[in-house]
Amino acid sequence: MINMMLTTSLVLIAIAIGIAVIRIVLGPSLPDRVLALDVIGVNLIASIAVISVLMNTKAFLEVILILGILSFIGTIAYSKFILRGVVVERKRDR
């Protein structure tokens, strides 16, 4: 029973990732694509959590943390590129 529920949730997460991929390909503007990439990151984290429950192991918990960190940094980098046009600045002008 619980296995069937977890497998169903994995399928639903995969469908959500597919919809986000469609948004990345079609997305009319750059913020849409950045947001869709962030959605893919969150869905990957959720699917790894479900998989580690399904396989009854603790070996994937570091993967969740690393995916969270990298998704956070990637979203910040894209947002800064949208806002400033440059990712790493030499000297901020203020």
């Binding site: 940094i73 790493v88 030499r90």
Partner: peptide, 20 residues
């Protein structure tokens, strides 16, 4: 992997603040 995660922290600093 530890080095990669440590350098991602430094990259976050370089992103949010500037290089100088």
């Amino acid at each position: 992997i530890g080095g990669l995660v440590l350098s991602s922290a430094l990259v976050l600093l370089f992103l949010v603040y500037d290089i100088e």
